[in-house]
Design a protein around this nucleic acid. Structure first.
Length: 257
DNA sequence: ATGGTCGGCAACCGA
């Protein structure tokens, strides 16, 4: 069982990359965030023509999430339970008996802003969401762009970046609190070294070449699934480049049984 | 270094 997550920053402009990756990697599940397409503009025909099922929810210009799988996608739910539902930030489905919760957590903008408080609150609401549907003994994968780098080893400059909306004590506590409901970080389970990133801010000069990265995308699993996880790693496109890259797929592999 | 660059979408917003 191969499960992956990818922040597309527009699924339409990354469709070629996604279809090539699906064809090559043949994952069981690919979750995408920041599809940036309204439902009427979502490239569903291209994806189904490639042999995949896909459920999605988007909005104009921003956000947007989807779940892609060659398998049957069942029990789809969109949005959080209370208002604002943020329908284009969370989509849930069941694939081969595994519950998949794909989230695009609000970025937060500035520490002092209401948007950051909203981000902290979002993690609390997500914990309730898990609590109302599952138990820690259920088979649940929670993955996506969580917009949090929890540890010093998850950013290129822990001193300079401390206090950023994606790297501070409060936001880490908020993420851990939701994780403590019953999730294990599958990537950290298999990788203890620093400097393993999933995101490079292209606004920073030469961020990719200089490897100014962040690990803000995650794949979490409840205990029963974490026990079956054999590996987790970041797949970088294009592969001709050294370590950092433009596009990163975070992958976790689970034993079938 | 308080900018930088993308993408959506049609003036700026968001990351």
């Amino acid at each position: 069982m191969k499960i992956a997550t990818f922040n597309a920053n527009s699924i339409r402009s990354r469709l070629g990359i996604i279809l090539a990756w699906l064809d090559e990697q043949k994952p069981d599940i690919l979750c995408v965030q920041e599809t940036k397409a309204q439902d009427k503009d979502f490239p569903i025909n291209e994806i189904t023509s490639a042999g995949f099922n896909c459920v999605f929810k988007g909005q104009k210009s921003y956000n947007g999430v989807c779940i892609i799988s060659p398998h049957k996608i069942e029990n789809v739910e969109i949005g959080l339970d209370d208002e604002p539902k943020d329908e284009s930030r969370i989509i849930k489905a069941c694939v081969n008996g595994i519950n998949i919760v794909n989230t695009y957590v609000p970025q937060g903008r500035e520490m002092e802003s209401e948007h950051f408080q909203y981000k902290l609150e979002w993690f609390k609401r997500l914990k309730k969401y898990f609590d109302s549907r599952f138990t820690p003994e259920s088979s649940v994968i929670w993955l996506g762009d969580l917009n949090v780098a929890p540890e010093d080893i998850d950013v290129h400059d822990p001193v300079g970046l401390r206090g950023h909306v994606c790297f501070n004590e409060q936001v880490t506590a908020a993420m851990y609190d939701t994780m403590n409901w019953g999730f294990t970080d599958l990537f950290r389970l298999h990788n203890k070294d620093a400097g393993q990133y999933t995101f490079w801010d292209y606004r920073a000069f030469g961020s990719i070449k200089r490897n100014l990265g962040w690990r803000i995308d995650h794949i979490m699993a409840t205990k029963p699934l974490a026990q079956k996880c054999t590996s987790s790693y970041v797949d970088k496109i294009p592969r001709t480049l050294p370590q950092p890259s433009d596009h990163t797929f975070l992958i976790a592999e689970l034993r079938k049984e």
